[in-house]
Nucleic acid binder design. Structure first.
Lengths: 153, 153
DNA sequence: GTATATTGCGCGTATATGCACCCATGTCAA
DNA sequence: TTGACATGGGTGCATATACGCGCAATATAC
């Protein structure tokens, strides 16, 4: 069918579909959270660090399934803003211990409201059932293999 | 249920789920396409420009649902590599016409093989049915409103 | 036909992302 | 002990992403 061909030609790439969706959703969440002074990415870092307690960059990066160096750079704005404190590791002198400051906790409390609203609005627009289904699929994508082919012919 | 609470606490954010999935899938595609010398993002630009024919930055950006300035910067590596040529617009002297060069076409031909393989592998791992379902949901996410709240209380 | 509004793009800034490489520290074996 | 290796982290580089600002060219109003 020609319509399928048109789809093939212009929208086939699954990766692009993911990236486009991520862009859109990120913009939506960031818009909703703008007043709180935290982007959704920063909120996620702060939130998780608060929940899991002080830990090193490597640990947090693994936890978030993020590249170590990416996280290292993402914490800089938070550190500058005084929301995260970086101290020396207790046992290993190389490591740095990340900790949410009191200001960080306060900011998190404020941002939490915006985030909850964004999250709720997303579910309202998208529907509870579909959201659940979507999350299930997204989870599988990040869980399932997807190893790159070993230089096939 | 406690397990749901744990999920709530650590993985609730839909936006994060999107971003994580996009990261993973991008890495997979980029790995698969590394030999071709094109990232999946660049491939998408080149591919679409080739298919739609020469056009301005604004047009292509709208087509790709990408910010104008983002696309403007994304084409720089392609331009440096001689895969895209930037000429003056015929009617409007402000506009710039983007065009895929012969080298670009050649590169695209090579990259197409890697991309097809990555795409096929994704579908193999994820399953045809689930892939279709996933794409349907992703499409809705980018299509459906998701307007940011007008500064609610 | 000029004043005004619109539009096409670039640039500065800031963040997000990840690879390759480097240094300092820690560990463990010979 | 010392030398090989492992590990925590930073830096340089390159790209991806988008907002605000400004400039030049076009279109529109009067």
């Amino acid at each position: 069918m020609p319509s399928d061909l048109a789809f093939e030609a212009s929208e086939a790439c699954h990766c692009l579909a993911f990236r486009r969706a991520a862009r859109r959703v990120t913009q939506f969440y960031d818009d909703c959270m703008a007043a709180s002074g935290l982007r959704v990415t920063q909120y996620s870092i702060l939130s998780r660090l608060k929940r899991l307690g002080p830990m090193t960059i490597n640990q947090l990066a693994a936890e978030m399934e993020l590249d170590r160096t990416t996280l290292g750079r993402n914490i800089l704005p938070l550190q500058r803003a005084g929301l995260i404190a970086v101290g020396k590791g207790s046992t290993d002198r190389r490591s740095k211990e990340l900790r949410v400051t009191e200001a960080g906790v306060a900011r998190l409390r404020a941002a939490n409201r915006s985030w909850t609203e964004a999250q709720a609005q997303f579910e309202a627009v998208f529907g509870r059932a579909r959201t659940t289904e979507l999350r299930s699929l997204l989870r599988e994508v990040t869980t399932n293999g997807l190893r790159s082919a070993p230089a096939a012919a």
